[in-house]
């Protein structure tokens, strides 16, 4: 589904290369994790894939179902099925959570040539999805992420994912700032969304999230490259020995 090949990217304003040849492939139905020390380029990978401003791709490619992601605008990538759960979900004052999500969903549907959902149809959909994630009606009415706790923000990201039904979900450090209970709730939400035609790329610094979201494949990233790929046991190795050991082994 997602193919990244020899991806090189640098900051637009600075001459600083961050991604130095990332290659990986996530087939449909699988959950892959990217682990790595701070500054290794994990979050940059998610930004470059989703089309955030400020980065320049200098080499390589990234495709979703064979379509060139890097040529698309961010909203086109979203409509094509790419979803990024943000490490720091953004607050939008004055805009109701429901209004926001309905506008987004209908924008995607329109772009794909599908019929837009009416207010009533959308209400039904979001109630159903919200219930499964333990999100009460009050949270739906509040402005997007404004005054939400850390856990609420992350749950809201998962709710958006559930409603938008993307093909390729990238979770950028979703566990950061969460206590164990909140993390379990978020992980349950993600697990409920696992499906044969959907894939996940879970970016995390720690192994603990992967206790709850079991990955099929784990990639270790360092200095802008994937340096090692393996099964779930690789995450445990990191947990026990730290990155330093592992990296010296690779080097």
């Amino acid at each position: 589904m997602l193919k990244i090949n020899n991806l090189h990217a640098k900051l637009e304003d600075e001459d600083k290369q961050i991604l130095k040849g990332v290659s990986l492939e996530v087939p449909a139905g699988e959950v892959h994790a990217i682990m790595g020390p701070n500054g290794s380029g994990k979050s940059t990978t998610s930004y470059v894939l989703s089309g955030r401003d400020g980065y320049e791709v200098t080499d390589g490619s990234a495709t979703l179902y064979g379509e060139d992601l890097l040529e698309m605008e961010p909203e086109e990538r979203a409509a094509a099925g790419l979803f990024l759960a943000f490490q720091y979900p953004v607050e939008i004052p004055g805009v109701g959570n429901m209004t926001f999500l309905r506008t987004a969903l209908n924008a995607q549907r329109k772009r794909r040539g599908e019929e837009e959902l009416s207010a009533a149809e959308f209400l039904k959909l979001i109630r159903e999805k919200g219930k499964a994630l333990n999100i009460d009606a009050d949270m739906l009415k509040r402005p997007v992420n404004v005054g939400f706790s850390g856990g609420e923000k992350k749950r809201n990201e998962i709710l958006q994912m559930a409603v938008l039904e993307p093909k390729m979900c990238i979770l950028d450090e979703t566990d950061s700032g969460l206590d164990v209970d909140a993390m379990r709730l978020v992980a349950d939400g993600v697990n409920a969304l696992r499906a044969p035609d959907r894939a996940f790329l879970v970016i995390t610094h720690y192994q603990r999230l992967l206790d709850h979201i079991r990955p099929d494949v784990v990639h270790i990233m360092s200095d802008g490259k994937i340096v090692k790929t393996g099964g779930p046991e690789l995450a445990l190795e990191v947990e026990q020995n730290g990155y330093a050991d592992l990296l010296s082994e690779v080097a």
Partner: peptide, 13 residues
Amino acid sequence: DDQLFYCRQRGMD
């Protein structure tokens, strides 16, 4: 810019 990108990542132009 963060708000703009957030909205666009969710599908709005």
